[in-house]
């Protein structure tokens, strides 16, 4: 098989950063904060590269929708082994309100233009945790979907995907073209080494805008307020059982 694969990559706040709410309570602080590729997307890129190494896949196209800095994220994907990249540039201000449906519409357009056979996406991004884009892409294209994949193997002219579901694993067979979203245990992504990042600078990155693709990205949702979760109240030590019982009575627990 020689498939053309599309992987989606999102630039998110790095997983190790302590996220702070912006003073106007409309979003979180993103200025001067370290960003990197969404870890679930890293797993998606890695899986595509491994399928390429097994000769199942012929070409890997990495796509990112986001502000100009999303190019760095695409470079990382190229350094990991993607062949070319498409950057759908969305100004930083509009990127904040970019919803899964917008991204899914953009991806669906690119998938049709690029004659893609297989789409591999991270199951969710670690910033908004929506877990919707993959499902929406499959819905828009009317393609089969295999979400939360923990193993992908070629099976005839389709794929056999093991999915992580509540309380166990489920094996599904999908015909191509299909959409697959990755779970944490699918693989361990490789590190983008310095020489590979240098080499990736020679690989092509196409620039597009949502308008080029005919996708409307006006927000359909309004963020009313963003708040931190309530902090846990301090506990207290009790001297003995009697004390504990009394404290519980005071608190109205018993």
């Amino acid at each position: 098989m020689s498939l053309r694969v599309l992987v989606g990559v999102k630039r998110v706040i790095d997983y190790a950063v302590k996220v702070r709410v912006r003073p106007d309570h409309k979003w979180v602080v993103t200025d001067g904060v370290k960003h990197s590729m969404n870890p679930f997307d890293e797993i998606a890129v890695e899986e595509a590269v491994r399928l390429k190494e097994k000769k199942v896949v012929a070409e890997i196209v990495a796509v990112s929708c986001g502000p100009p800095q999303a190019q760095e994220t695409l470079r990382t994907a190229l350094a990991m082994g993607a062949d070319k990249a498409i950057h759908v540039e969305v100004p930083a201000k509009e990127a904040e309100t970019l919803a899964p449906l917008h991204v899914a519409n953009i991806l669906a357009k690119i998938i049709q233009e690029e004659k893609i056979d297989l789409v591999i996406l991270g199951k969710q991004a670690i910033d908004d945790d929506s877990n919707q884009t993959g499902q929406m892409v499959a819905g828009l294209l009317n393609w089969p979907q295999a979400t939360f994949a923990s193993e992908i193997v070629q099976d005839g002219d389709g794929l056999k995907v093991t999915r992580e579901i509540d309380g166990g694993l489920e094996v599904v067979q999908v015909k191509l073209p299909a959409v697959v979203t990755t779970d944490l245990r699918l693989n361990q992504p490789r590190y983008a080494t310095l020489p590979n990042i240098m080499k990736a600078k020679k690989k092509p990155i196409d620039k597009k805008t949502p308008a080029d693709l005919g996708v409307d990205i006006t927000p359909r949702q309004e963020i009313i307020s963003v708040d931190e979760p309530p902090t846990r109240q301090a506990g207290a030590k009790v001297a003995d059982v009697a004390d504990l019982v009394q404290k519980l009575k005071e608190a109205g627990r018993i």
Binding site: Y15, A16, P39, I126, L184, Q188, P189, Y191
Partner: peptide
């Protein structure tokens, strides 16, 4: 170091999502 970074990321993801 590569292994260290990978493990650190995996663990923190597992802690927050599983």
């Amino acid at each position: 170091i590569e292994a260290l970074y990978m493990l650190r990321k995996y663990r923190s993801l597992k802690k927050s999502y599983y």
